[in-house]
Design a protein around this nucleic acid. Structure first.
Lengths: 143, 143
DNA sequence: AATACATGTAACTAATTAAATTACAAGTTG
DNA sequence: CAACTTGTAATTTAATTAGTTACATGTATT
């Protein structure tokens, strides 16, 4: 299993706003950069918009940051694109046998540890910003 | 997306060894407790065995811990059952356009942050042991 | 107001993956 | 050797994700 690439595509879109700011980004041009279908981009753009990370206007080409991209964390993006449901990074088998000590208690017990692990990952995402990513890209680019 | 329930089933199996130690656990009896097919249990048992967490003998009923269960971390189990490939918790879209700054650099840039987040989660799993889970179960059981 | 081009979104298809099932080989014990 | 076990491969089923198509809606320009 793997967390959906919607997350990396979301980061891609946001990076383009800054690194391609001399031209107007349309869902079509972004799709070319990402190498996917424009409708996929529009769907993800819609999620980023709904999360108030970007502003987009129906019918008008272009995207803008809704706030300083140094203040947009990877956790913000991760939440925006709904790649992992709240506290459901790990799944627990359903309907274990309630007549067994383990079957009766495993869901409640394991849930607690799974949530902690998920939170650790999400807390780490919170320390990273789109600016960090963009800075890396500027450094890494082969011109 | 969600991480496979093989992980929680693995924890279930290990917990049964201790909490059901008065009887012999067969793949069949474990399957009843987990509420799945015995072949699924055998497959996971095979993984736990390969990771040296348990000992099982072909043809002979029963499982034993290969080491003290206070020394078995949830990370050990997680690695044993291969629910997430090394550094592939997050997937990155493939074949971004190399003629674009972002397309050219995103994989390398984002990879670094994704690995950090994954490591944070795995480091947290390392702090939790099967004993912790079993203690919770003993506390929570409704007798 | 008509044309061209953009976003927004729903419905459908294809591809991938996970889980369950079936079947049987091989090991062990009495 | 009979009964029962683990080990494992092959198959089916179910669920999920990504990609595609189509079209409604919004905007701007002439």
């Amino acid at each position: 299993m793997s967390i959906s690439s919607r997350f990396s595509v979301g980061i891609h879109i946001l990076s383009l706003i800054e690194l391609n700011k001399n031209t107007v980004n349309t869902s079509e041009s972004i799709a070319e950069s990402v190498n996917t279908n424009a409708a996929v981009i529009r769907k993800i753009m819609g999620m980023l918009k709904k999360a108030d990370l970007i502003t987009v206007q129906p019918g008008v080409a272009g995207i803008q940051f809704a706030r300083d991209y140094a203040e947009i964390t990877l956790l913000d993006v991760y939440n925006a694109v709904h790649v992992v449901k709240d506290n459901e990074l790990f799944s627990v088998h359903s309907n274990p046998n309630p007549n067994c000590i383990v079957g009766q208690t495993i869901q409640g017990s394991v849930e607690h540890y799974f949530h902690r692990a998920q939170r650790a990952m999400e807390d780490e995402l919170k320390t990273m910003t789109i600016k960090d990513v963009i800075d890396d890209m500027r450094r890494d680019v082969q011109s």
